[in-house]
């Protein structure tokens, strides 16, 4: 029982980070969104496995909510946004893909170096995985900085959010339901706002590459 639990938890948490790295690797916006969906489901899996192991009903509800919002609804909305533009490729990121992957590796090393100090505070099979969450946050932030398209940036933001959620799940068995609910709804709202923004941006300048927005500064 215990070894199955640990193996599933490791698998799910690892999937979260792996999907984050996959988003860096892929250029097609639609496959990036698909990766995000996978990540949301993996995150939900982490929450549900933890909840079943520790018999916490609130966490179980959170896990189901995460599955719904981050695994299904948000990716669905993003897919609709990306359909607005048939040529939806992250054509020239500020840092190219191989370099991004090398950088991501460095970020993972960094988060293990920093994260072990946190996990040593209360070592358990769950907390050992916390650096994975930290790495997801950093990879997400990296994506936010280096990708040009608005959709990719939003994906980066959601990666950061998912990474934070993973860390909270692993370290403290999740934050109170209301907080998790709040942050998930935030992400949802950001995506909805983005949808409107994209439509008006395209009408205005025929692109959603944020580099073009430079002329707007004061």
């Amino acid at each position: 029982m215990n070894s199955t639990y640990i193996a599933t938890l490791e698998l799910a948490a690892g999937a979260v980070l792996l999907s984050a790295i996959m988003t860096l690797w892929r250029r097609n916006v639609r496959s990036i969104v698909a990766m995000l969906s996978v990540q949301g489901m993996a995150l939900a899996a982490v929450a549900i496995v933890l909840a079943l192991h520790e018999h916490e009903h609130a966490l179980l509800i959170t896990g189901c909510l995460v599955f719904l919002v981050k695994g299904l609804v948000v990716p669905h909305l993003l897919r609709r946004v990306s359909l607005l533009d048939p040529r939806s490729r992250e054509s020239r990121p500020l840092v190219n893909v191989p370099a991004s992957l090398v950088f991501a590796a460095a970020l993972i090393v960094l988060s293990y170096v920093v994260g072990t100090r946190i996990t040593s505070l209360s070592p358990s099979s769950a907390t050992h995985l916390a650096p994975l969450g930290l790495a997801t946050v950093l990879v997400g932030y990296f994506m936010l900085v280096t990708r040009r398209r608005a959709v990719s940036k939003i994906v980066g933001l959601i990666l950061v959010d998912n990474g934070i959620a993973l860390v909270t799940f692993l370290l403290t068995s999740g934050v109170p339901l209301i907080v998790e609910l709040g942050s998930s709804l935030d992400v949802l709202l950001v995506v909805v706002v983005l949808q409107f923004l994209m439509v008006s941006m395209r009408r205005h300048s025929d692109t959603d590459r944020l580099t073009e927005m430079k002329a707007l500064h004061d």
Partner: peptide, 20 residues
């Protein structure tokens, strides 16, 4: 300078520096 990438990079670099 109006570049959103630069603003985000400020935050990212600051986070990395703090972590290190």
């Amino acid at each position: 300078n109006g570049s959103i990438h630069r603003y985000l990079a400020f935050g990212f670099v600051a986070l990395l520096v703090i972590l290190v």
